[in-house]
Amino acid sequence: MAFHDLPADSRPREKLLARGAAALSDTELLALLLRTGIAGRHVLQLAQDVLDAVGGIAGLLAADAEALRRVRGLGGTAKRAELLAVMELARRAMGQRLAERPAFEAPEAVAQYLQLHLAHKAHEVFAVMFLDTRLHLLAMEELFRGTLSQTSVYPREVVQRALHHGAAAVILAHNHPSGDVQPSRADLLLTESLKAALALLDMRVVDHVIVGPGRFHSMAAHGEL
């Protein structure tokens, strides 16, 4: 079932044009992208099915092509391609904002950017945001995967990538798949180790952010750097 088959007061397109995008629910916004439903499920039901399957809008933004392929109703390539394109645009828009403004002026944007990239991964990922002298984003790279510790994250590789990007500062980041974003003792020790290694090259660690679905923890904000 498509939009024209829905009752007039249930059509997201007309609602958006009349009242603005903010008036639409997550389901309605996604339905606009999907445009049509599948056999036995009209487009609004399909949109809700998709959100339920991936864990809401945050989960959708973090989903990859394979995760979407497993969702009933997204087996075809057209819908998946459009969703992946929209999600990548969201990530790039956030990255552009951070490239244009100092990171410390937009701490919530930093957290949202990292959540888009890391929060819904099923395994731990350690990433680094490389910043210039004005603390604008140069690049972000995922450097290590698996259980994080001083022995699994190598300071030398972090330093090498920072030199490659000509970074003056970095924001360290990783996710906690458990959802508990409080830093462990290993997280704190790792942060100190990386701070010491980067300080030898006069590179500053601005923050270490731990993210999980819908939440984050900034070590800088909590005086843990």
Rank of each mutant, 00 (worst) to 15 (best):
residue 97 R to T: 13
residue 73 G to W: 07
residue 48 Q to G: 01
residue 29 L to G: 10
residue 5 D to G: 00
residue 16 L to K: 14
residue 137 L to F: 09
residue 29 L to A: 15
residue 165 H to G: 00
residue 168 A to P: 00
residue 83 L to I: 15
residue 59 G to T: 09
residue 182 Q to H: 13
residue 105 E to Y: 12
residue 50 V to F: 08
residue 203 M to H: 07
residue 37 G to S: 02
residue 200 L to H: 06
residue 19 R to K: 13
residue 149 S to H: 02
residue 180 D to T: 06
residue 11 R to P: 01
residue 12 P to W: 11
residue 63 A to F: 09
residue 144 F to W: 05
residue 207 D to S: 09
residue 180 D to G: 01
residue 104 F to M: 11
residue 140 M to K: 05
residue 132 D to M: 08
residue 206 V to F: 01
residue 215 R to K: 11
residue 152 S to M: 03
residue 162 A to I: 03
residue 52 D to N: 11
residue 189 L to G: 04
residue 83 L to F: 11
residue 103 A to S: 14
residue 148 L to D: 03
residue 199 A to R: 12
residue 133 T to K: 09
residue 24 L to Q: 06
residue 84 L to W: 12
residue 89 L to P: 00
residue 26 D to Q: 14
residue 204 R to F: 10
residue 66 E to A: 13
residue 22 A to M: 03
residue 167 A to W: 09
residue 12 P to D: 10
residue 133 T to N: 01
residue 6 L to N: 05
residue 173 A to I: 10
residue 97 R to M: 13
residue 17 L to M: 14
residue 221 A to N: 03
residue 107 P to S: 08
residue 120 H to M: 11
residue 1 M to G: 12
residue 169 A to S: 14
residue 166 G to E: 05
residue 36 T to C: 01
residue 30 L to W: 08
residue 208 H to R: 04
residue 182 Q to N: 09
residue 181 V to M: 05
residue 15 K to A: 15
residue 41 R to Y: 09
residue 81 A to W: 03
residue 70 R to N: 06
residue 192 E to I: 04
residue 66 E to G: 00
residue 97 R to E: 13
residue 20 G to T: 03
residue 203 M to V: 15
residue 126 F to A: 10
residue 130 F to S: 00
residue 67 A to K: 11
residue 126 F to C: 06
residue 125 V to Y: 09
residue 186 A to Q: 15
